[in-house]
Amino acid sequence: MGDWSSYSLSDFLLFSPQVYERLFVLHNQDFWPAQLVSLGLGAAVLILLVRGTPASTRIAFLILGAAWLVVGGAFFLGRYQTINWLGSYIAPLAGIQGALLILLGLRGATGLISSTNHRVAHTIGVGVLTSGLLYPVIEVATGTSMRGAQFFGLTPDPTAVASLGAIALLNGRVRLVSALIPAMWCVVTALTLSTLGRSDFAIAPVLLALAILAIAWPRTTHTS
């Protein structure tokens, strides 16, 4: 590819803003009313993690893992790949993330920080997770149409953000590994949206930054 300095980000962008927005419009149309189910499951994740018992935490991570599998298959392979050949490379990564979160749930490696001992990190984690669920509302507030908005469990941005919020509540070092793929996607989406000139490009990276803060917050030995 010769001289890389002669390339700009827009040289790597294969699609127009209109095509990208319609991708989500069509996805929403085709999956309606799955949005209601996935939002219900997302709310369940939030409630289960706030409750914070070992059993409820396990279930929450199983749901999160399943959400990634749906996003990998239905969105990256079924939809995104039709406009970006990179989709077929990203889909397996979403699959790996799904498998990782499911494994965490199955093995019970999901000890959480408590809201009393790690108040700041806990609050941020819950806040980021909630933002992932309210993603369509945030997007609409920044100029996207509700028809083209992204929903947790169906498309990558809110799924990545909600997962980061949940991962930020984890106590163990496993949180670092499990945050990698969602964090990478937040960067990819920010670059994509800013290159497309979209006003909502900052949502995912801002929430990622908050999640990183909570994930990096030092842990003590107290767990809930």
Binding site: L13, L14, F15, S16, V19, L23, L26
Partner: peptide
């Protein structure tokens, strides 16, 4: 056809 005709399966486009 770079970008302009990359419309995926979108029937309208």
């Amino acid at each position: 056809s770079w970008i302009t005709f990359n419309v995926g399966n979108d029937p309208k486009l």
